[in-house]
C-alpha cells in the first residue's frame, strides 16, 4: 500500500500507477463548482489579481503547491467559535470540474485531485504534464471518510455556502484509489472499453 503525505513530491506521483490503492495523510482543500470557478476567474484567467483576493491567493498558493484538492460537499457541524467538525465527507461527481481542472493543476502545481467518477482527456493530460494523479474516493463510505478527517483547520469563501466553501482539512490515512495516473492511464477508460467488448460477446 502506498502512503502519501502532503506536500507530495513528483517522484512519489510518478511511482503511482492506475489501480494502486493509497492512504493519504496531510492537508487537503475541498473545492467544487464555485471554488473552481473562483480560482480560475480570479487567479488564473484574470489580468491582475483583485486586491481583495490577494491575501487569499498567497495562502492558497502555499496550501496547493504539492497539495491536493477534494471534490467534496461536506456535512459540517459547528462545535465552537470558528471550530468545525466534518460529519459526512463523501466525494461528489468530478466531471463537472473538467473545464477548470487542468488549469488549476498547472497554475497551483497540484499533485492530486480527489473525487468520484473520474475525469476526461484534458485533466488526464494535465496529470501527465505536471505530474499529478486523480484519486478516487469510495462512494458511500461517508462514515469512514469523515473519521479520516482529523481536523478542520480553516475555511475560506464560506459565503459560497457550506458544501461549496473551501475547507482546509487535515486527513490521516484517507483510503483512495489512483484511477488516473501520470503516465496517461485511466481506469475509467479501460474498464469501460473492456466491459463494452465483453457485453458485445455476451449479446453475441
Amino acid at each position: 500500500m502506498h502512503k502519501l503525505n502532503t506536500p507530495i513530491s513528483d517522484e512519489a506521483i510518478r511511482a503511482l500507477k492506475a489501480g494502486d490503492p493509497v492512504l493519504l495523510s496531510g492537508t487537503v482543500v475541498t473545492g467544487r463548482d464555485a471554488a473552481h470557478k473562483f480560482l480560475v476567474e480570479n487567479y488564473i484567467k484574470s489580468d491582475s489579481i483583485p486586491a481583495a483576493e490577494a491575501d487569499l491567493y498567497e495562502t492558497l498558493k502555499g496550501l496547493l503547491d504539492g497539495g491536493v484538492i477534494y471534490h467534496c460537499g461536506p456535512v459540517v457541524s459547528k462545535i465552537g467559535e470558528d471550530q468545525w467538525k466534518f460529519v459526512a465527507a463523501g466525494p461528489t461527481t468530478s466531471i463537472r470540474e473538467e473545464v477548470y481542472q487542468a488549469d488549476v493543476i498547472e497554475h497551483f502545481n497540484l499533485k492530486g485531485v480527489i473525487g468520484k467518477g473520474g475525469m476526461a482527456g484534458r485533466t488526464l493530460k494535465a496529470c501527465q504534464d505536471q505530474p499529478a494523479v486523480y484519486l478516487h474516493a469510495v462512494g458511500g463510505a461517508a462514515t469512514l471518510i469523515a473519521q479520516s478527517v482529523v481536523e478542520v483547520a480553516n475555511v475560506y469563501k464560506l459565503e459560497f455556502g457550506v458544501p461549496e466553501a473551501m475547507w482546509v482539512i487535515h486527513v490521516e490515512d484517507l483510503p483512495l484509489i489512483v484511477t488516473m495516473d501520470s503516465h496517461g492511464n485511466s481506469i475509467h477508460d479501460t474498464v469501460e472499453a473492456q466491459s463494452k467488448e465483453k457485453l458485445a460477446a455476451l449479446l453475441g
Binding site: G19, H136, I177, H188, V191, S195
Partner: peptide
C-alpha cells in the same frame, strides 16, 4: 468486469 466503483 466493472467491479466495485468501476475499478474493475
Amino acid at each position: 468486469g466493472i467491479g466495485p466503483m468501476g475499478f474493475g
